[in-house]
Amino acid sequence: MLDINVSAREQVTLIEVRGRVDSANADQLGEALTREIESGHTQIVLDLAGVEYMSSAGLREIVSALKRAKRGPEAGDVRIAQPSYRVREVLEMAGLDTVLQIFPTQMEAVGSY
C-alpha cells in the first residue's frame, strides 16, 4: 500500500506520497491525482520525499495527470517536490526533467504557483 496524503495550501493541492511506487500500486497514485484534477484542483504539488523507489509505472501516472491538468480551463500543472536522487534519476532518464518543474523543497514548489 502507498501512503498518500492530500491537503490544501491555499489554492495549491499538496499530495505527499510515501513508499515504493511500482506497477502493483501506481494506480493508487493515479487515482489520487485524477480525483483532485476532476474536482477542479489542478494546481498540484506532488511531494516525493517519502518515495524511495519509483518504476516507469509511477511516471506513467504522473505524465497522464500532467496532461489532464494542463487540459483544464485554468492553468493547471503537476510540479514535483523533493525527489530522492534515485527517483530523480528515473525522471531524468525519461526526459521528464524538461517537461516537469522539479523543486528541492516543498515550500518552493507550493510557492511557485
Partner: peptide, 16 residues
C-alpha cells in the same frame, strides 16, 4: 526529448 503534447504516458519500461 519529446514535448509533453507528443508524449505517450507509458512505454518506458524496456527503454529503462
Amino acid at each position: 526529448l519529446a514535448s509533453m503534447e507528443d508524449r505517450e504516458p507509458g512505454g518506458w519500461g524496456i527503454y529503462f
